[in-house]
Amino acid sequence: MDQVRQTRPDIWVRAEESSAVGAVRRTATHLAESVGIGPERIGQIAVAVTEAVSNLVKHAVQGMALVRPCPGAPAVVELITLDRGPGMPDVARALRDGYSTSGTLGIGLGAIARFASRYDVHSVPGAGTALAMQFADGDLPALPPASGLTRPIGEEVESGDSFAIATGDEATTVMLCDGLGHGSLAARASQEAVRLFLAGPDDDPATILRRLHHGLGHTRGGAAAVARVTSDSVAYTGIGNISGWIVHDGQRQGMISAHGIAGHQGRRPRQYVYELDEHATVVLHSDGLTDRWSPAGMPGLFARSPAVVAATLLREAGSRRDDAGVVIVRPRS
Rank of each mutant, 00 (worst) to 15 (best):
A186N: 03
R211F: 01
L198V: 00
S231A: 15
Y236R: 05
E192G: 03
L198D: 03
A224N: 04
L209D: 07
D202A: 14
A223C: 00
V234D: 11
N241W: 10
S243E: 15
G179W: 03
D203H: 10
N241H: 15
A206V: 13
A235L: 14
V194H: 07
R220L: 13
A186T: 09
A225K: 02
R195A: 15
G179E: 07
G217R: 13
H182R: 14
T237V: 12
Y236S: 06
G238P: 12
T219Q: 05
R188S: 13
G238V: 13
N241G: 10
S190F: 03
R228A: 02
R195H: 09
S243L: 15
T237R: 04
V226L: 07
L198M: 03
R228W: 00
W245E: 15
A206K: 14
D232R: 13
R188N: 15
R211N: 09
L196V: 02
R220S: 10
L212E: 00
T237W: 01
T207Y: 04
E192S: 08
H182M: 05
V234S: 12
G215L: 03
H214V: 07
A206E: 15
L185M: 07
G179F: 09
A189T: 04
A189K: 03
G221Y: 11
L216F: 03
R210N: 01
N241L: 15
A187R: 13
A206L: 08
V194G: 03
G183H: 01
I208W: 02
L180D: 05
R228V: 02
G181I: 10
A206M: 13
T230L: 09
H218C: 13
H218Q: 15
A206G: 15
G183I: 09
Y236I: 02
A187S: 11
